[in-house]
């Protein structure tokens, strides 16, 4: 199948290889949570809710009492994928992604400022169309910011792949299932440091560098967008305060 049309240079959905899908972000969707956000990348839609910092519920989980305990759970709704999933939680993929998100966010949260407490990040996928991992991290960043939890920097994430001899930014589900390589990158935006790097399938080294750089560019663009959202949110809050 031609993922990149050789005659026109467009992808299946009409994007160019270096274009992202439409982004949409919103803060404060779950009123009862300390911080929450909705993030959409194309047809992938994710809600993140942050509860914390609060008292540690389970002492045994706490490793270092001088730092906050960060916990994360990733769940997909049964209706989120084309085929209805029978086991939306507890399967290996969800556990792995929960771990990945936790580690990524932990790198950015200033945990030493909140000892003896725990921060819960819950991510619920409403619609999955490729790039769920990245959408979850972006949503979590927004939710953490909404909750007012101190962070070093904004964490953003984006994926990129390599099909039909060209690097493609932000793969959707069809392109992801094409069997080509899929590189997911998460960076700390201003500090320009990579906190998440995952890849499946094979890729020669120099091509990998091109693809990874494309993904990092995507992350930076998302970071700009997230900053805009947060800025506008703050303006709204200020306006309501009067």
């Amino acid at each position: 199948m031609e993922y990149v049309n050789p005659l026109t240079g467009f992808r299946v959905d009409g994007r160019r290889p270096n274009e992202m899908r439409q982004l949409k972000g919103e803060v404060g969707v779950v009123s009862r949570a300390d911080g929450s956000a909705l993030f959409e990348m194309g047809n992938t839609r994710v809600i993140a809710a942050v509860y914390g910092p609060r008292e540690v519920q389970n002492r045994s989980q706490q490793v270092n009492s001088k730092e906050a305990l960060v916990r994360c759970e990733y769940r997909m709704a049964e209706f989120s994928t084309g085929d209805r999933r029978r086991k939306p939680k507890g399967d290996r993929r969800s556990t792995e992604i929960s771990l990945v998100i936790r580690q990524t966010m932990e790198a950015s949260i200033l945990t030493h400022l909140m000892p003896h407490s725990q921060i819960d990040i819950f991510v619920q996928v409403l619609q999955a169309d490729g790039g769920t991992r990245s959408a979850c991290i972006n949503a979590a960043t927004l939710a953490l910011a909404d909750a007012g939890i101190p962070m070093r920097d904004i964490v953003t994430s984006c994926s990129a792949g390599y099909l039909c001899s060209s690097p493609l930014l932000d793969l959707n589900y069809i392109e992801d299932s094409a069997g080509g390589p899929d590189v997911t990158v998460g960076i700390l935006a201003k500090m320009d440091k990579v906190t998440l790097l995952q890849m499946d399938a094979k890729l020669p080294m120099d091509t990998f560098e091109t693809v990874m750089e494309l993904a990092i560019e995507g992350c930076k663009a998302i970071a700009t967008y997230i900053r805009e959202i947060l800025l506008e949110n703050t303006k709204q809050l200020e306006y309501r305060r009067g």
Partner: peptide
């Protein structure tokens, strides 16, 4: 869905 940012991010 309120904040519709219909942006196609072109990245050179």
């Amino acid at each position: 869905c309120r904040r519709r940012r219909s942006a196609l991010f072109t990245l050179p």
